[in-house]
Simulated assay, not measured.
Amino acid sequence: MTEHQRVAVVTGASRGIGRSIAIALAAAGQAVVVGYAGNEQAAREVVAEVTAAGGQAVAARADVADEKQVAAMFDTAAETFGGVDVVVNSAGRMALSTIADLDLDDLDAMHRTNIRGTFVVAREAARRVRSGGAIVALSTSITGLQLPTYGAYAASKGAVEAMILILARELRGRDITVNAVAPGPTATELFLTGKDAATIDRMAKQPPLERLGAPSDIAGVVAFLTGPAGRWVNGQTLRANGGII
């Protein structure tokens, strides 16, 4: 581990799980680049929350699937804080439909963010993260639950797990850990939108802990993986889902 302050780039950090991750990493002493796609006000609110608590943060807009914008986001980290040690790709898109009925435009949009976006961020991270650093990508426990209407989304996140675990092997000798975190049903806007109360209640009762995850539950796992206690966890998918599978 190096002595300089660790610097984290977190995509999808303006809301939901990404927001909680950014706040948790800042609370652990990391300077944070709050990556966002479009909601500048929400990203600035995360920066304000971090700085009010005594941390350091800056917002950076980037479409994760656009390699030039992603490179510029990493440049912001280097110019503002001196480099990059931690990268967490939390940006994601979800469209629910049976495979038979899915609009292929929705498929393309989802795969652009979830697959290409993960690849672009991972590629930049592989080139920039300093020795002793950590890379984390968000997957989903739906890949194991195999619920109807989640086929395209699960396929995109299966690709995330495949590429991120291969990256762990490709970074041999660099002292950089690479892992995926696969949340179960988590109470975010992305999860709750379009679901009625009965569906939400049924899914909340599925894990043995009998509740939905909270964004802070996932943020705690990411903070562990990117901190000193998580250095021996590498090339893994951690299923943070309350025991649902």
Rank of each mutant, 00 (worst) to 15 (best):
T177K: 01
G16T: 10
I99C: 14
V88E: 05
A26W: 01
E210S: 15
A91G: 09
A162C: 10
G213Q: 04
W232V: 09
L212I: 12
E67S: 14
A198I: 06
A65D: 04
G38P: 01
T76R: 14
A43D: 04
R116Y: 00
G12H: 05
H4P: 03
A214V: 07
V88W: 05
A180D: 01
V84T: 15
N39A: 14
I115N: 01
D63M: 05
L147N: 10
S216M: 05
H111V: 08
G55H: 08
G117S: 05
T140C: 10
R130K: 14
E79Q: 13
A28F: 03
A22H: 01
N234D: 15
T113D: 05
A71M: 07
E124D: 03
R19A: 10
V84H: 02
Q236M: 12
F191K: 12
A59S: 10
V33K: 03
T76G: 05
A154N: 11
A126C: 08
D105Q: 09
G220C: 11
A137E: 00
I218M: 02
T193P: 04
I218C: 06
G227R: 08
A77K: 07
E3Q: 14
A48T: 15
E40C: 06
S139M: 14
A137K: 00
R44Q: 15
M203Y: 09
A42R: 15
T140K: 01
D175C: 06
L165I: 12
G16C: 09
T186I: 15
G194T: 08
V58G: 01
V64G: 09
I23V: 15
G16W: 00
A159Y: 00
L225A: 02
L96V: 13
F81M: 09
A60L: 09
S216G: 05
V64W: 07
G29V: 08
L209M: 15
T76M: 07
V136A: 04
V87N: 02
R15N: 10
A134C: 09
V136T: 09
I218F: 09
V34C: 08
A53V: 13
A180F: 02
A78N: 10
I135C: 05
A52P: 06
G220L: 13
I218V: 15
T51E: 15
V7L: 11
Q69E: 15
R202I: 04
A78Y: 06
A125T: 06
A77F: 05
L96T: 14
L102E: 11
D105W: 00
T80N: 07
L25M: 11
T143C: 13
I21N: 01
A59E: 02
A26P: 00
I115T: 12
L145M: 15
A214Y: 05
M110E: 04
